[in-house]
Design a protein around this nucleic acid. Sequence first.
DNA 1: AAGCAAAGTTAGCCTTGGCTAAACCCTGAA
DNA 2: TTCAGGGTTTAGCCAAGGCTAACTTTGCTT
Lengths: 137, 137
Amino acid sequence: MTLPDPGEQARRFIKVREAHRSEVQQDYVELIADLVAARGVARVVDLAERFGVTTATVANTLARLKRDGLVEDRPYRSLCLTAAGTAMAEASRARHDIVVAFLLRLGVSRAVAELDAEGLEHHLSAETLAAMEGFAG
Amino acid sequence: MTLPDPGEQARRFIKVREAHRSEVQQDYVELIADLVAARGVARVVDLAERFGVTTATVANTLARLKRDGLVEDRPYRSLCLTAAGTAMAEASRARHDIVVAFLLRLGVSRAVAELDAEGLEHHLSAETLAAMEGFAG
DNA sequence: AAGCAAAGTTAGCCTTGGCTAAACCCTGAA
DNA sequence: TTCAGGGTTTAGCCAAGGCTAACTTTGCTT
Ligand SMILES: [Mn+2]
Ligand SMILES: [Mn+2]
Ligand SMILES: [Mn+2]
Ligand SMILES: [Mn+2]
């Protein structure tokens, strides 16, 4: 019945839109780092398979990551993160792991925890993430 | 080190993209219902103010909601939900309230709970939502 | 009843992030 | 050494969801 303050409410939705603008980049650098750690190389085809998109879409997205200084521009070579990309990947992975651990502690099954974490992780304030980390123990 | 199964991982990202496709509609019908409940009418200019966008953007989005049978098409008149729109609004509000109650119980401040809930709410499986509801008590 | 201000709509533009199809590079096997 | 196939990029398309600017409608005030 009682509506929030208009400006306050607007700030919430603006925050959601900001999160959505950076989340593709976060997920890309995180996966590139994981592939490099596990296999030594990260290939465009692997990203396409694991994101569920075409290689053309991956190429498009990678062009933006290169433009934004997160991925090295080396055509036809294995993908490689810049220092900024590596930093973003580490932060994303740490946050992702906290969210999964939290959901498991909440009693959610592993499959659903991994599923929901992939979207949830981009909408957490520092305060909420800290509370989740504390709860997960 | 150990990577998830590629198909499983792809299904997670596909789910996130599906959630993002429906979330604008869910937030619109929820806010329209709230405005109607609190004021009797929902105007385009109110939506624009509370979403933090221009009235032109609201008009664009409303065209999609009308196309999809969620909002009545009555140019220059107060906004009005269809039966389908009302049902979606009620489900969205119920879920939103569970998420806020859960975050508060977790120990997060009210301001941050309301902030994070707006994005979080669209990435919760039934299992996770049930766990949150149980935890919120 | 007229006029004006606020509300709503329309036109035209942009970026993101999807797609298909086709061209391009690279490499290992013949 | 060639060349076929796999991986990568490019070209061209699309919808969602933002924007500004201009136009139309409504409704209130005088
Ligand atoms: Mn993610
Ligand atoms: Mn992630
Ligand atoms: Mn929301
Ligand atoms: Mn989201």
